[in-house]
Design a protein around this nucleic acid. Sequence first.
DNA 1: TTGTCATGCAAGCAGATGCTTGCCTATGGT
DNA 2: ACCATAGGCAAGCATCTGCTTGCATGACAA
Lengths: 95, 95
Amino acid sequence: MLAYGGGVGDVFKALADPTRRAILDELQERSGQTLFELISRLVSRHGLTSSRQAVSQHLEVLEAAGLVRTRREGRYKFHELDTAPLRAITDRWRL
Amino acid sequence: MLAYGGGVGDVFKALADPTRRAILDELQERSGQTLFELISRLVSRHGLTSSRQAVSQHLEVLEAAGLVRTRREGRYKFHELDTAPLRAITDRWRL
DNA sequence: TTGTCATGCAAGCAGATGCTTGCCTATGGT
DNA sequence: ACCATAGGCAAGCATCTGCTTGCATGACAA
């Protein structure tokens, strides 16, 4: 079975939230960030003030949609963007 | 002011619903459908059973997002797909 | 005019969603 | 061992969302 369990709709639902889109923006600009790194940069660069749990739950959604991949090292968990599922959009309506 | 009033997020929110995505699929395949035409084809071609009001409200959302353009003729209202707002997605994450 | 057809408007409701709160686990430093 | 750090789990809550229900409007036909 695959690394992510979501259907096609999960990608669209994941993109529906502005904080999650900002997270994708951030991960595109700087790949491999940890949770706390992301929180800090969301504040300083996007003007967002989200709690740790809020961001953590957003990352779960993004990971379930296959838009974020993670790798664990010790007590750190690094996140990186994966734009592959976004092809579902461009392919569907021939962009 | 522009023809549609929505911000960027409205496009993503509009795409978050599976019925709305099916409507976009339908309008891409056959442009200029009326509300009842859409309902009928959503049933026969997508296996969806949505009420008139449900589809009507979905069309409002899609129109507000700029994804659907309408034209009125007498008592008929024709709908057509506009994929231009989808560029917001491809541009944002360089697809 | 009377009736029908295509669509619009608005209130109400159940389920989904994003967030908080509080506690828990685990890793690494001293 | 002790403590701080990085992250996880789960219940509760306010809001949002999609849908229904019921009535209203406007266009065309007989």
